[in-house]
């Protein structure tokens, strides 16, 4: 068989073997970035909903408190999505002929549920609990962002493990007095971390070791 490649092809081969290491690292890095990108975590993506419910109107304009609708957020792991009846408290009279609200009225008439599309969704192997966070002074805003500026709800943070841990390692950076948990645009009266450290003590927030051990969230 005649020579197909010139001798110099050998060094080309060596370089590409060497380069393969970098290539691998590069591909690994790409994969890693894809895994953390909003495309994968679905961060900041608007979800279609059966009714264009807007927190801008209901929270921003009308000033409703989160707990008017998300009733169980302080007492259970689950925040609750309001049943149709809650909408009808007001929409029995307000915009009661609007076609936008027809799915709500239809649901109320027939007793079938409105099927909202989930926005925040942790994998089922993660344990999350609203009540502990809310009662220890972690505000809705810290995790869900300014919902009063979201015409349709989107996911504010990545919901990746690193996001949870970032706060569990240093809760004093985020906690606020309990009476402000549902407030949006909270500004601490003074140094945030100093207030945070005081609250961590006052609310008896556990040490970093407990909060970052695997079985806190994977149980």
């Amino acid at each position: 068989m005649s020579q197909i490649f010139h001798r110099s092809a050998n060094s080309f081969a060596r370089i590409s073997i060497f380069g393969a290491v970098f290539m691998l690292a590069f591909l690994g890095w790409i994969a890693f970035e894809i895994d953390r990108s909003p495309w994968q975590t679905r961060q900041a993506q608007i979800r279609e909903q059966p009714v264009p419910f807007s927190h801008v109107h209901h929270v921003g304009d009308l000033g409703l408190d989160c707990r008017y609708c998300h009733t169980t957020v302080e007492t259970s792991s689950f925040a609750n999505i309001p049943p149709t009846k809650t909408c009808m408290n007001c929409h029995s009279q307000i915009w009661s002929a609007s076609p936008t609200l027809e799915p709500v009225r239809a649901s109320f008439r027939t007793g079938t549920s409105i099927r909202w599309t989930r926005v925040y969704d942790l994998p089922d192997f993660v344990y999350f609990n609203h009540s502990i966070h809310v009662n220890k002074g972690v505000g809705c805003e810290t995790c869900h962002g300014r919902v009063d500026r979201m015409p349709l709800t989107w996911q504010e943070h990545s919901l990746q493990m690193s996001w949870c841990l970032d706060c569990h390692r240093q809760p004093e950076k985020y906690v606020r007095p309990r009476e402000f948990v549902t407030a949006l645009g909270y500004q601490p009266a003074g140094d945030r971390e100093e207030i945070g450290r005081r609250l961590v003590k006052e609310y008896g927030i556990q040490d970093v070791r407990t909060l970052t051990s695997c079985n806190t969230c994977h149980r």
């Binding site: 049943p83 649901s107 008439r109 549920s113 409105i114 099927r115 909202w116 599309t117 989930r118």
Partner: peptide, 14 residues
């Protein structure tokens, strides 16, 4: 009485 729970579909995941 017509009622309560808003079911949440998992469509986004499918």
């Amino acid at each position: 009485m017509p009622t309560e729970t808003g079911d949440r579909s998992r469509e986004s995941e499918v």
